[in-house]
Design a protein around this nucleic acid. Sequence first.
DNA 1: AACATATATCGTATATTTACGATATATAAG
DNA 2: CTTATATATCGTAAATATACGATATATGTT
Lengths: 106, 106
Amino acid sequence: MMTELKEKLAENKTLSRLERERFIAMFKAMGNPIRYEMMEYMLKFPGCNTTNIVDHLPIAQATVSQHLKVLKESGLVSGELEGPATCYCLNDENVNWFKETVQRIF
Amino acid sequence: MMTELKEKLAENKTLSRLERERFIAMFKAMGNPIRYEMMEYMLKFPGCNTTNIVDHLPIAQATVSQHLKVLKESGLVSGELEGPATCYCLNDENVNWFKETVQRIF
DNA sequence: AACATATATCGTATATTTACGATATATAAG
DNA sequence: CTTATATATCGTAAATATACGATATATGTT
């Protein structure tokens, strides 16, 4: 019956309204070349801070901050204060949920 | 050695410039609520035509057609002429590539 | 408290996306 | 070849996203 449950979950192609909104927000967040690059950078350098990201990209600090906000709001990225800086990482839990949901839905 | 190759491919987190562009275009395409709904609809009703989709959505035919173009250009969706109508389906090959790439990259 | 450093937010210009009605195109039927 | 039906494209208005400089906030240091 554990197996049956797993199969049921694996086949279930519906999301609650909030899950669906989050799922779409994640697609939207990654559907921008700058933000996609940021995701790749954080994957490569977990714990990097805003300055690292700004140095790595051809855009102004204010714009980086704006993009980080979109990524954070989608749930894909987490930032935690470390002294005067903020360290950014992929939010593993939410990224895994995204990956599982992609497999499940399509 | 087949196993090693598989592992190598599974771990490879880089995409060519064109693959990367397509990957981002797919995220962008699905990052819109109307287009996401269209994807779900085509998943549920493969081979549906534009009229079916128009009837299912709260937007004008011209707008549906525009969104379908975005989905087609991303590679996620294929349309083939069937008489005077166009039948739409998810492009399984490309959707599977997307799913595999999501697993591989993140 | 004053200062330096790191990041976020504000205001705003520009670019892109979204949506529509009108119109063009393309196929099948008569 | 005219008509009906299905879809795509055009032109355009309105909404949203992107980018920037200027400024605010927040933390650690002196």
